[in-house]
Write a protein that binds this DNA or RNA. Structure first.
Lengths: 348, 348
DNA sequence: AATGATTGCGGAACCGGTTCCACAGGAGGA
DNA sequence: TCCTCCTGTGGAACCGGTTCCGCAATCATT
């Protein structure tokens, strides 16, 4: 089966390429008769215009790069979902890319700068801001606060989330011996969570020993190790800066005969979907993750489209005066039993 | 900043476009001197060749479409990870697309047929085989057994997985009153799981009443409803055909004072990452999900590359005699406490 | 030294669309 | 009636690369 092009259709319809192109793209200034003829020929020959060619001449790929550090866990999946929801409605596609190491970083930057996409949504802690600013393409950064002419940032207010949690532990419960487990040092999230915690601590005049701030790396395994480390000197409550580590801590403790929720309390951060089903159900901080995806997508579309006036007719701004913005989303405290609270069944 | 093209580079290097192109693509037959000159100019001017143009003339997008029905849950995330791992190594990109409804289906088919990609990996129960066969592009189907000239299929042997589980319940435990919760009727997976279960039942001469096969839809909520439905006539064990529903059943029972793992046993299917942390830890069937992604990616690459001979030199087959294949992957029974087994701490 | 093979490169066609510009013909206004 | 405006269309340039073909110079062979 020979591949069919717009020219063949044109020939068969006895019109020129340009007319066919206009008909396909719903341009005005094509007679109804011609349009119908073209459309029926398209259907008859199963003709789908070649995106590659279209893309080259129209300078639009209708694709947005989405860079994430892997997709395991519900976290990234939710982001993808949020992004997809919005982009799909606006007829954009997602080019998904991981950023595990420097090689992949190079790869996706190359893809972006090679105009494989019209813009990018990036969640990558390791990428240098200076490098990023050299990219000549609309960008939305997740979990960052960098902005510039063409860069917007969306982040969750991790600091206030863990500040709230810390206050819940300190003020509501009156705990005085609290242990905090951090994420990896390079993680923006992790540092924000720590700083929110520290702020609450300082405000309450509590004294937290150096040995009560323990370094983890956001993995289950690191949580388990923390459990073993503090076994002989248990605090009242352990605040793990993500749920996976909280789970690891729980497991580590259980393995050593310590009962979480009774002998020691544990709270997490993220509100992963399984947190309410574990034993004891985990008190944690919920983030509007899917919303992050949605908003990122909306932001990128915003910087892409040059705006429309009230008549719905496209108008090009003479000068795009817009500057990237910085959105911060709030969090929500999810109280369950693992912090020592008694909640009724099925409450949350 | 004016955009720079291959022609500008050529002019500056005092060579022709073609030579620059050859230099960039590491073609042979370019003198070292020229190559170096071109490379250094590229770096100096931050020149990245335009993918859109490259794509049009080379007829290769280096992109594979990945179609999934959403990405929530660890299931799809793992598939993406597996696919990414392989594709990345081979310098391919992933164009991610959801398939929620007929509109999105149309959309992604259009993208594929419009040659936005070089091939596609599709997991979409609702897509009609006849429609699929009209697509002139290498395809890998997940959870299907359709094959053709250009279509391969990868699936998990769901049937044997649930057959094994059923036998574990029937033979090892000697349960006689088993309730099976299905997934949505359109789901290939779901039907396979049911049929494996039924086979084991028949082979053991067990009698399972009509009312012991209950329809769910793979969601947590449907599991909870099942729990309420069977509350007044509890079976010995409930085999939910996925973990989420198993969890829903557990919650539904707990809310009504029935203790899973004691009053009634429950098993699931999928081995989601949280299954070992819930109370009681869930007996389930593990699927090599990430492997599915990996193999799908490898298959699609296989159909893309025309093969290489032992000297590592590309050779075009005169006729591509390859036909799509059908891979079935086995499963693994994961025994934990929820089925009534006593396992030592930290065993699995 | 003559011949043939190889290397390095330039020119031009080509990939399949989009879009600018020109133009014919009909409608409408003065 | 003449001029202008609008509609529908064709022609050609263009997007920015890749690749085929041909040619000159160099190298190897006999």
């Amino acid at each position: 089966m020979k591949k069919i092009t717009i020219s063949e259709i044109a020939k068969m319809a006895n019109v020129s390429k340009s007319t066919v192109s206009r008909a396909i793209n719903g341009s005005s200034r094509v007679s109804d008769e011609t349009r119908k003829k073209v459309m029926s020929l398209m259907r008859a020959y199963d003709f789908v215009p070649d995106t590659r060619a279209r893309t080259l001449s129209s300078r639009k790929t209708n694709t947005i790069a989405l860079v994430l550090p892997g997709v395991s866990g519900p976290y990234y999946g939710e982001i993808i979902n949020g992004v997809e929801e919005i982009l799909m409605k606006n007829n954009y596609f997602i080019l998904f890319m991981g950023c595990e190491d420097d090689e992949s970083r190079k790869r996706y930057l190359n893809a972006i700068e090679g105009k494989r996409v019209d813009g990018a949504i990036i969640l990558d802690w390791q990428l240098s801001p200076t490098r990023l600013k050299r990219v000549d393409m609309p960008l939305v950064l997740i979990d960052s606060d960098l902005t510039s002419e063409s860069i917007s940032s969306i982040s969750i207010d991790n600091a206030s989330g863990s500040y709230d949690m810390a206050n819940h532990l300190i003020k509501t419960h009156g705990y005085t011996d609290i242990c905090f487990v951090t994420g990896p040092a390079e993680s923006y999230d992790s540092n924000q969570r720590l700083s929110g915690f520290m702020r609450a601590v300082k405000e309450s005049d509590l004294k937290i020993g150096e040995n009560r701030i323990i370094n983890g790396d956001f993995t289950f395994e690191s949580g388990r190790k923390v459990a073993e480390k503090i076994l002989d000197n248990l605090p009242q409550v352990i605040f793990a800066s993500n749920d996976e580590m909280a789970l690891g801590v729980m497991e580590g403790l259980k393995e050593n005969g310590v009962i979480p929720g009774k002998d020691v309390f544990i709270v997490g951060f993220d509100d992963a979907l399984w947190t309410k089903f574990i034993d004891p159900p985990l008190t944690t901080v919920r983030q509007p993750i899917k919303e992050i995806g949605r908003i990122s997508a909306m932001r990128i579309l915003d910087s892409l489209e040059s705006g429309k006036n009230t008549d719905g007719i496209n108008v090009k701004h003479d000068v795009n005066v817009k500057h990237g913005i910085n959105v911060k989303l709030g969090t929500q405290l999810i109280i369950r039993q693992s912090c020592g609270c008694q909640t009724k069944k099925g409450e949350i």
